[in-house]
Design a protein around this nucleic acid. Sequence first.
DNA 1: CCATATCGTCAACGGAAAATTGACAAATGA
DNA 2: TCATTTGTCAATTTTCCGTTGACGATATGG
Lengths: 312, 312
Amino acid sequence: MNWLSSWESFVRVVETGSMAGAARRLDCTRAQVSKQIAELERNFGVRLFERSTRKLALTPSGEVFYQHALRALDAVASTEIAVRNLGDTPCGLLRISASLAFGRLYIAPLLPRITAQYPELECELILSDQLVDLFDDNIDLALRHTKAPPEDAVARRLFALKRVICATPDYLATHGRPEHPGDLAWHACFGYLQAEASNTLDLLGRNGEQASIPISSRFRFNNLDCIFDAVMAGHGLAILPTYMAGPEIRRGHLETVLDDYEPLTGFGRDLYACYTPSRVRLPKVRVFLEELERQFSPVPPWENFRSADRNP
Amino acid sequence: MNWLSSWESFVRVVETGSMAGAARRLDCTRAQVSKQIAELERNFGVRLFERSTRKLALTPSGEVFYQHALRALDAVASTEIAVRNLGDTPCGLLRISASLAFGRLYIAPLLPRITAQYPELECELILSDQLVDLFDDNIDLALRHTKAPPEDAVARRLFALKRVICATPDYLATHGRPEHPGDLAWHACFGYLQAEASNTLDLLGRNGEQASIPISSRFRFNNLDCIFDAVMAGHGLAILPTYMAGPEIRRGHLETVLDDYEPLTGFGRDLYACYTPSRVRLPKVRVFLEELERQFSPVPPWENFRSADRNP
DNA sequence: CCATATCGTCAACGGAAAATTGACAAATGA
DNA sequence: TCATTTGTCAATTTTCCGTTGACGATATGG
């Protein structure tokens, strides 16, 4: 039987408190977890869980095994980390996590480039706007725009993520161009729909004054691409990151409004590259970070969309 | 891939210095070891061995992995020991090592009895007159007659292993009965053939005097059963352990000579049960030891072959 | 100096142990 | 009460592990 897998399953069962829960986390069937636990018990000649009706409780033996197993698995993991970090050529599987829109636009195109450069490297791009767990999902590198990078991870600031309020020239011509934050209340204004979404749009003025305007739009998305498409179709205004709006602004398909105000979102102003401390020295992570800096530093390519005098 | 197996293979390769050697020790094919090492290197993205012509040399990365792997494997092993020792019902596989003759005669009959008593227990009896390694051969319990029990094992003295010089009545009638140690030189006398076998027969007299008589026999065995058969066939004298000779003596098929002298062999006078410290508390080991004591203590059944006055 | 044995490796095959599937009883909660 | 969830089991499929038998390369011995 597969030791590592069984032991990990056991630890997961202990931590989640149920086999079904562990199976979900481990992305396998309940039957397998059940069989692995049964196999462990058969091998050790010891009952690890007390299965009363529907509750799992660790037996004293199970507790002993749990403590030892944690140590052993940790030793195994630390071995792998230590050895893996010794190499100097990027190889193996690099799993990158990014948000849907940014990942599709600016990370996905990097994959063929980087894999072509390093023949032993494979890449997977996991696009999701939900928070992913670096450990659980085995993510080598997560690109996040967030206010507070996770504590248990190494967070490296890549660049500022600017946002603009914009709409199509057609829309502005028809509905009028907002000159003051208060004007926004009269416009169809799309906000990103997220769990803790506020119904207000917060703006930070040049002099530090803040304005909070209630958002009004009769359809909402949790997908930035949909918001972008709606804006491009002339359905209203939206706060868009410059990496999306920039090229369209330059081509004249979008115009910015209220340039003296900076939109505030729950995501913060910066994009971070996050990875677990154990992967700091991984060659594959290193070369990808270098590629990111080469692409986006000091100024990302999408930023030069307005004339120099208006670019602070 | 099978982590535990691959890591163990790697450690063995390091320790033996060659893949073929490791394969022999691990009882598998060279191809498998080779593939496991290659797989490890592929996974880690690191070269573990420098394969020049025909020598294997650890790379610096391999050295790091070796140190970590030792620790990790040790953690795994200690986990198994700790948990296995928690149970109280004998179960699993009990591997017993014993010498050919003694094992066949007195240990083998215990196996059906003990397995019948404990339904979850399986037994394997490894008979060999060669020294076995408790670790390498995964022996739970070794029965050895030796002068010096291994240092790294728990050795528990079970009982004295007496030996007698004997022959058939026919033989003694034909060739004469030796009255003094020196007389043995004129007889066909079979000694056990072992690596460091001396060609002499050493006797210890009642008063502490020692006699060393050259052994003369034109055929020799490294197998006690063959010696026994030869003696029973009237081909000569031999030193036989009482567990073999005893029953025949009582039935009158063999007679002892030079009863005032104790034959000295390289094996010492005592039978030990040896096991690694990690198995001290294993239920299966415990119950088998109890069975051994029940059978052979205080006096083994084969010892009462002479009349009480001659039994010291 | 050649013959032989041994070494590490490779590709293909066969089989054993995985993991999935689909079902079941038991137990919980609406 | 019914619907859901949980842990388990038997049967099936799939995966991958280990053997086999070969190869070139390289020591070793006569």
